[in-house]
Design a protein around this nucleic acid. Structure first.
Lengths: 138, 138
DNA sequence: GCAATAAATGCACTTCTGTTGCATCAAAAT
DNA sequence: ATTTTGATGCAACAGAAGTGCATTTATTGC
């Protein structure tokens, strides 16, 4: 628990009880989580607080947002080396259409794409959809 | 106009007045459009009709949905050779953060990605964000 | 042409996610 | 201890997506 506190403090985020809980929850889950997931996990939680907590976490580079094509924004903890506050860490994401879970494939970077003249890419989002690890083995 | 009628009939969609108008609108615009765009373009239009029209168009392979990361679904006419009803036509999309427009880069296919063991990809979505053609020239 | 049937449209309403304003509470600084 | 700042909770709103049902329009069989 003390570790989480330190992590938050290092990122200039005050380690309040709720924030520690949220961080812990996300660290335990290995998949990307939606705001609603966290809301359901904690009986005594307010959507606004969670929303703003995640926003702060994102601004301070603790989590990154994932748009996996389901109409709900997901969040995942950044890896130790990730510096997506400065420049996008362009790894890809995988969304399983069976279990509906989204995971970061941090090892898989988005390949470079040659664009037509005049187009300047600043950011990229690549989501693969299909059957994940867990589901395909069953 | 007769051409549009034929196109719709070929795809097994009854060419009603509204449907022809929507098709025409999408053909003239070269960018992907949101339901709201169409709604604003026609004073006398009902969102539900547009919604269901686009749904039918999509099912019949006339348009394809685009998730460009803005929280609104966009639609674009399929190219003549596109058969995304059967298998995804995996071209990429570009979203301009300046003019806020989304275009299909139909010539640019999504490169093959090697996934970890157990993962089976069935579909992919790649959106590049940045400054488009038009905006970068100004 | 006319009745029967099927498809398309329009209205009202609901749900879900994301978001903001404001009051309150807790913590940090002076 | 008081002031100031930041965090939290409630209420309410906005936008997009989606559903149910009644009505209109088109198509089919007779």
């Amino acid at each position: 628990m003390k570790e989480i506190e330190k992590t938050l403090e290092n990122k200039n985020v005050r380690p309040t009880a709720m924030r520690i809980l949220i961080y812990k929850y996300m660290a335990e889950k290995e998949i990307a989580v939606a705001l609603t997931d966290i809301e359901n996990a904690f009986a005594k939680s307010d959507r606004t607080t969670l929303y703003r907590t995640l926003k702060t976490f994102e601004e301070k580079g603790i989590v990154h947002q994932i748009d996996d094509g389901t109409s709900t924004t997901k969040y995942a903890l950044c890896e130790p080396g990730c510096n997506c506050e400065i420049e996008q860490d362009l790894h890809l994401h995988f969304h399983c259409s069976n279990c509906n879970e989204t995971v970061c494939l941090t090892e898989h970077k988005i390949p470079h794409i040659n664009l037509p003249d005049g187009y300047v890419a600043e950011d990229a989002n690549l989501v693969l959809k299909g059957i994940c690890d867990k589901c395909s083995r069953q």
